[in-house]
């Protein structure tokens, strides 16, 4: 049994921190974009046009029922074939955005349907159109109501972001692998990477708690 030497970790900390930086960048971008995607898909999912609604629900069903890794492969190998030569990071962001956009869309759709009809009626009776009503009255309330669930999805996103290392995105997990290829100490570095994820996770949970407290609609 080899001895464990965590000092290597501290010597190579900058590699890990660099990776952590990209993880944070990746996750922040994907989080924000996934909410945009979620709003769009939530709206098309309740569209009065049956083909639009059905197509959306089918799309949601497929992307909910397949692993993120598979979807990442699709984008990583598939996009170049349709002429889109994107860097691994952008591909990773796209993959994460779509995957979590789908999860958040389901949550948001439930939230939208949960806003009482009186809100629609009051807004429409003032003369606002359907889309103006959605934009100004319904969606803001829906987002606040489902923010805990969205928050959970953001935490999941942080952890699942480790998968993009498999499509060569230089985030924390891949950085750990880089360090390992030079020092041959997988246990120490993966352990350290795990610890860093844990810390970031804890920070994210803390931030989310504060955000939820601020935006919750106490009725």
């Amino acid at each position: 049994m080899q001895g464990l030497e965590f000092s290597v970790v501290f010597e190579n900390m900058n590699i890990l921190l660099q990776g952590m930086f990209w993880t944070v960048v990746l996750c922040s971008s994907a989080s924000l974009l996934s909410i945009v995607v979620a709003v769009v898909l939530a709206m098309t999912g309740i569209s009065k046009l049956k083909p639009v609604r059905s197509a959306t629900l089918f799309f949601l069903w497929v992307f909910r029922g397949t692993p993120l890794l598979l979807q990442l492969f699709l984008f990583y190998f598939g996009l170049p074939q349709v002429g889109l030569y994107l860097s691994p990071i952008i591909t990773g962001i796209i993959g994460l955005t779509l995957h979590f956009g789908v999860y958040n869309a389901d949550v948001l759709r439930a939230g939208i349907l949960g806003v009482e009809t009186g809100q629609h009626e009051a807004s429409r009776s003032l003369g606002l159109s359907y889309f103006q009503t959605m934009r100004k009255v319904i969606i803001p309330q829906a987002l606040r109501n489902v923010s805990p669930a969205v928050g959970n999805n953001l935490i999941a996103l942080l952890k699942e972001s480790s998968l993009v290392s498999i499509i060569t995105v230089p985030e924390l997990t891949l950085s750990a692998q880089r360090a390992i290829s030079e020092t041959f100490r997988p246990f120490e570095f993966y352990f350290a990477a795990g610890a860093l994820y844990y810390v970031v996770n804890w920070g994210l949970e803390f931030i989310l708690q504060r955000v939820e407290a601020r935006t919750a609609l106490t009725r």
Binding site: K159, S162, S165, T173, P186, F187, Y190, G194, Y197
Partner: peptide, 10 residues
């Protein structure tokens, strides 16, 4: 609180 992938690698 940590990614499953990391756990598998460890």
């Amino acid at each position: 609180g940590t990614p499953c992938l990391i756990q598998l690698f460890v």
